[in-house]
């Protein structure tokens, strides 16, 4: 089985996000970029499938820091790693890159495309359904377990309230991974150093083929706070206040 796994580098939204001067993007200059969490799970699922039944895994990374992440992917077991060129300092729109991923999948007779269920920059739509529709093959997002039996896949998808649904479908397919069957593995420093020698292929993007979805007029920060009260950053005084608040509401004792 040929697996293509997509690794998108996205801004670390746990850090401070500032707006660019024109107000239409975030200022990427000082940002930390990290692998989209869900894509990390997609990578893990790809490697688990390889370990379970044999597969060739190609990892395709996009965005700032792609090289570092591809070395990590190689250390975790990817057989081939490719950096897809992207516009520098631009958000990674899944609508834009879907055609490139679909073209690579076609060119390499890929059986299974895996990517994260979403990224925080997917405001114009999610990658798995776009690629699935472009390849005209089945796609399912929000998976937390994938088992391959030859060309048949059993895929478990999360619904709300802890309900899980299992589907059967045949490859070729595109899956948007929510959670890998096992938590993503750590790789040792020595493995990473070894993998740093892995040659990194390059791919140039295809034109998107879609019309521009919509236009971002401005970005802004949500108005903070609402009616909430901020108690500050001193744990001692915060604890005092909370004890008082809980007591007043009859919630301090069990």
């Amino acid at each position: 089985m040929n697996i293509l796994v997509v690794l998108r580098m996205i801004p670390d939204s746990a850090g401070e996000l500032q707006l660019a001067e024109d107000g239409r993007a975030i200022d990427r200059e000082w940002l930390d970029f990290q692998l989209n969490d869900f894509d990390d799970h997609a990578l893990e699922e790809a490697i688990l499938l390889k370990e379970a039944g044999g597969a060739k895994v190609m990892a395709v990374a996009i965005g700032e820091g792609a090289k570092r992440v591809l070395q990590m992917a190689a250390a975790r077991g990817a057989d081939e790693v490719v950096a897809l060129q992207s516009e520098e300092d631009a958000m990674i729109s899944s609508r834009e890159i879907a055609a490139s991923i679909a073209a690579m999948a076609r060119a390499r007779s890929v059986d299974l495309v895996l990517c994260g269920v979403q990224s925080s920059e997917d405001v114009f739509g999610q990658l798995a359904p776009y690629v699935g529709a472009l390849l005209d093959c089945p796609h399912v997002s929000g998976t937390n377990r994938i088992v391959a039996n030859g060309a048949m896949l059993r895929v478990t998808q999360e619904r709300g309230a802890g309900v899980a649904v299992t589907y059967e479908l045949a490859t070729p397919a595109v899956l948007g991974v929510q959670t890998a069957s096992k938590a993503p593995r750590y790789v040792s420093g020595s493995k990473l150093r070894e993998a740093s020698k892995t040659p990194i292929g390059r791919a140039t993007p295809e034109p998107s083929g879609f019309e521009r979805s919509a236009e971002i007029i401005t970005l802004r920060l949500p108005v903070q706070g609402g009616s909430g009260e901020i108690l500050g950053d001193n744990a001692d005084t915060v604890a005092d206040r909370l004890v008082g608040i809980l007591a007043a509401k009859g919630l301090a004792r069990n």
Binding site: F124, Q126, A133, Q157, G160, A214
Partner: peptide
Amino acid sequence: SANGLDVAADIAARTGWPLISY
């Protein structure tokens, strides 16, 4: 929703229409 995540972009891809999420 879990369903809408797949449906919205699928339809957008097949119609070519714009899509805005979230």
